[in-house]
């Protein structure tokens, strides 16, 4: 029964008529499921088959509004089915449904061609939001902690919920614009002004290629996005990878000044991004 639920639906959201071995699905269903006076075994199994796909596709939609806007509804739906067929949920929670999306997009670029690079950036950005929302936070390292220990002794780490992204497109502005538009759309029935109605159907310009470094994080449990300078990003990434502070600073590059480093660490400790390495 499990395998039959996970099989993709046929046209019209119906269950496929043939089983994998070519036998009629009605026959296969009737072997395990009883009919009743209103529904055949096929009909009853189909209820579950449909519910499975509707549930997972809904979740995929909810998690990827930016990707949907970029690809358009039709292409996005095809991608959703392909992804879910290839990578069914391996987690007890649907929160993790899209954890493998980036890898899938890389492995099967045809679904997003010719804009695969942009699709990957948006998918990474949207997944980062899921992680940043509820991933663990340890006790933050404070400015006083930094002042109290010699930098060579410090074993700093970046909070697990802080998601560091080096992207090829500034997708943060794009996804924010999409979400804003979708909110307006949801309210469009009571949109009173023509300007608001126009905003609700507006097509949002796709981001042009440009290296962008972003941290997706939370402050008082609200999600935020912060653009980073590339050297700041490299330092954070090195700390995350387990480098000692001196090494991490070296990763920032020769052009980084002491003043910049001081300002960055002041900001990062204020935001609570740093914690102690376990």
């Amino acid at each position: 029964m499990h395998a039959s639920l996970l099989r993709p639906l046929a046209a019209g959201d119906r269950m496929q008529r043939k089983w994998t071995d070519g036998r009629p699905m009605a026959e296969v269903a009737a072997e395990i499921i009883k009919p009743n006076d209103r529904l055949t075994a096929f009909d009853r199994l189909e209820i579950y088959n449909r519910m499975y796909w509707f549930r997972l596709v809904d979740c995929f939609h909810d998690d990827n509004p930016g990707l949907r806007a970029m690809l358009g509804a039709r292409k996005f739906d095809r991608l959703a089915l392909a992804y879910l067929a290839k990578r069914p949920s391996r987690s007890f929670t649907l929160r993790n449904l899209c954890s493998g999306l980036e890898a899938f997009l890389r492995a099967e670029p045809a679904w997003t061609a010719p804009r695969t690079a942009l699709a990957i950036d948006i998918a990474r950005f949207e997944w980062a939001q899921t992680v940043a929302f509820d991933e663990e936070a340890f006790a933050p390292v404070t400015a006083a902690d930094l002042g109290a220990s010699p930098p060579s002794r410090l074993r700093l780490a970046v909070q697990p919920y802080v998601q560091l992204l080096a992207l090829n497109h500034p997708v943060d502005a794009y996804v924010i614009a999409v979400k804003k538009r979708d909110t307006l759309r949801a309210e469009a029935s009571n949109a009173t002004t023509a300007a608001r109605r126009r905003a609700a159907v507006r097509r949002i310009r796709l981001p042009r290629r440009s290296k962008t470094w972003i941290a997706v994080h939370r402050v008082e449990n609200q999600l935020y996005y912060k653009r980073l300078e590339s050297s700041a990003f490299r330092i954070l990434e090195a700390l995350r990878a387990g480098a000692r502070l001196s090494r991490a600073l070296a990763r920032g590059g020769a052009g980084v000044t002491t003043g910049q480093v001081r300002d960055w660490f002041a900001l990062w400790t204020e935001l609570g991004w740093l914690c102690r390495r376990k």
Binding site: T93, R95, D134, E136, A137, Y161, R218, N221
Partner: peptide
């Protein structure tokens, strides 16, 4: 339960 079996953030707060 599953909605709160996460590391932190708004759900646990």
């Amino acid at each position: 339960s599953e909605n709160f079996m996460c590391g932190g953030g708004r759900p646990l707060e």
